[in-house]
């Protein structure tokens, strides 16, 4: 599948944990300002692929990547590319909310401060904008100096989204962002994703197929490290090309 407006492409990517091959020949285009969902049973490689897109897998000893991941024309695995720069452009939200044990304000400004946002005014503007974008501003605007640890799980996760947005990334990777949350918090995050795609490209890994169907424009189905099918979400969930996809989405395995 080729689109004109792609922001990230993977080309024949293989990924190894030691000798275990976790991804096999994955070639994908992620379109700009769209939501792409990655689904598949546990251990199928979807989270591995996600973490590969901003080089978070670099942190695990004994891993190896083959193939290319092109982000705006450059292979992010080229020698001489600093993964720190990549992660500034491609942000990440994790499965479990992981705010720092700092105040709400300091959580948001932590990254930008280290990137030269020094003036108090600029920081305050950034905090408000980021929290508004993450639809958390109204709930926390009076308690910005309270520890982030006092927020509820759903609020913490939206804070983590705001924290990622404060770096003004181009792409937001979300690794099962609602799997630790209750249904109401989950609904809020899903609404948020729909809002955010106007300004950001979002790639989301989810265990929840209804969620993929609700929030995404494109869906990729993975099984045993292979990309089985990659299609517009509506097509994949109604008229899948592959038999394995159909079996998975109808609940016959996985």
């Amino acid at each position: 599948m080729r689109t004109n407006d792609s922001i990230i492409q993977t080309k024949q990517v293989n990924f190894f944990y030691g000798t275990f091959k976790a991804l096999i020949d994955v070639t994908m285009d992620f379109e700009k300002n769209k939501v792409t969902a990655l689904i598949g049973p546990s251990g199928c490689g979807k989270s591995t692929l996600l973490r590969l897109l901003n080089r978070m897998n670099d942190l695990i000893d004994g891993t190896r990547v083959e193939g290319e991941v092109i982000f705006e024309g450059t292979n992010i695995y080229d020698t001489g590319i600093d993964p720190v720069d990549i992660r500034r452009r491609i942000g990440m939200v994790f499965q479990k909310p992981n705010p720092f044990p700092k105040t709400i304000f300091d959580n948001i400004t932590y990254g930008p401060k280290l990137n030269g946002v020094r003036s108090k005014d600029a920081q305050e503007t950034l905090v408000q904008q980021s929290l508004e974008q993450a639809s958390l501003w109204e709930e926390v605007k009076d308690i910005l100096n309270r520890s982030a640890m006092t927020l509820s799980g759903g609020q913490q996760q939206r804070l983590c989204i705001a924290r990622a947005l404060a770096m003004r990334p181009d792409v937001l990777l979300m690794d099962e962002p609602t799997s630790a949350l209750d249904p109401i918090s989950t609904a809020k995050i899903e609404e948020l994703i729909a809002e955010l795609k106007r300004n950001y490209t979002i790639i989301i890994v989810t265990h929840n197929m209804q969620q993929a169907a609700r929030v995404s424009d494109y869906t990729g189905f993975f099984y045993l490290g292979k990309l089985i099918e990659f299609n517009p979400t509506e097509k994949l969930f109604t008229k899948p090309d592959e038999k394995q996809t159909e079996e998975y989405i109808t609940g016959r395995f996985g």
Binding site: M56, R87, R89, G91, F94, N98, F100, L114, M167
Partner: peptide, 18 residues
Amino acid sequence: VPQTFREASLGLGVSKWQ
């Protein structure tokens, strides 16, 4: 110190040393 703190920071494009 929880590994998730390190991941959160590195995921924001903050260097390992910082």
